Simulated assay, not measured.
Amino acid sequence: MTRSAMDRFIDTIEWVAAGFVGIVAVNIFVAVLLRNIFSYAIPDSFDIGRMLLGILIFWGIAATSYRGTHITVDLIWGNVGPKYQRVIDVFATLVLLFVVTVQTWTLFDKVRGTYNDHVATFDLHMPTWPFFAVAWIGDVSAVLLIAIRTYRLIFHPEDMHDPKFKSTE
């Protein structure tokens, strides 16, 4: 079965998010290893690790928003019929789209502010704005995926499930 360009785009964003999980894990592992075995601290390892965690959070929002795998409370949803479940899903996704769009707007202001203020790390004097920009791109990806999710929930709810889980009957 061929996958649509939209599904490949969604998968790419999820793989990028997974890549950042790996980068954060390697950064922490190497920093702890060097500090505990060789008594050597990587310059700016704390700042870099902190900013990488920020990137991971925003790309994680993108990865979980489309699939709806973030934390939910399904007390009402689980006790209503499919028609009302879809209404609740559309409403909740529209609220999420609004919130993440506002968050993306404010994060862009942070990227611009760190760029204009020439904010740098303490030891190596690396500019911090590129880290904020990568986090912002993750947030933009979240907005795009939530918009796709909203569109599919409203017009093509059958496309909301991963094709590998669809029944062949």
Rank of each mutant, 00 (worst) to 15 (best):
I61L: 14
I61S: 01
A63F: 12
S65K: 04
S65D: 01
Y66Q: 01
G68R: 06
G68D: 02
T69A: 13
T69G: 11
H70G: 04
H70Y: 14
H70F: 12
H70P: 03
I71M: 13
I71W: 05
T72V: 11
V73Y: 05
V73N: 05
D74P: 05
L75E: 05
L75C: 00
I76S: 00
I76C: 00
W77H: 14
W77P: 01
W77I: 00
N79T: 08
N79E: 12
N79Y: 09
V80H: 02
G81T: 11
G81A: 08
P82S: 10
P82A: 12
K83D: 13
K83G: 06
Y84Q: 12
Y84C: 03
Y84F: 14
Q85L: 05
Q85V: 04
Q85Y: 07
Q85H: 03
R86D: 03
R86A: 10
V87M: 10
V87K: 09
I88Y: 03
D89E: 15
D89S: 14
F91W: 10
A92W: 04
A92V: 11
A92R: 06
A92H: 03
L94V: 14
L94I: 13
L94M: 14
L94C: 13
V95D: 00
V95F: 13
L97D: 02
L97T: 12
F98R: 07
F98P: 05
V100R: 02
V100H: 03
T101E: 09
V102N: 02
V102Y: 12
V102W: 09
Q103E: 10
Q103T: 12
T104C: 09
T104K: 00
T104M: 07
W105S: 02
T106R: 09
T106D: 08
F108Y: 15
D109F: 00
D109M: 08
K110F: 11
K110A: 13
K110V: 13
V111D: 02
R112N: 07
G113C: 00
G113H: 13
T114E: 06
N116H: 09
H118Q: 11
V119D: 11
A120M: 15
A120S: 10
A120E: 14
F122E: 09
D123I: 06
D123E: 12
D123S: 15
D123C: 06
L124G: 05
L124A: 08
H125E: 11
H125Q: 14
H125L: 14
M126L: 15
P127Y: 15
P127W: 12
T128K: 05
W129F: 15
P130I: 07
A133E: 08
A133C: 13
V134T: 09
V134H: 01
V134I: 15
V134D: 00
A135N: 08
A135H: 09
A135M: 08
W136M: 03
I137D: 02
I137N: 04
I137P: 05
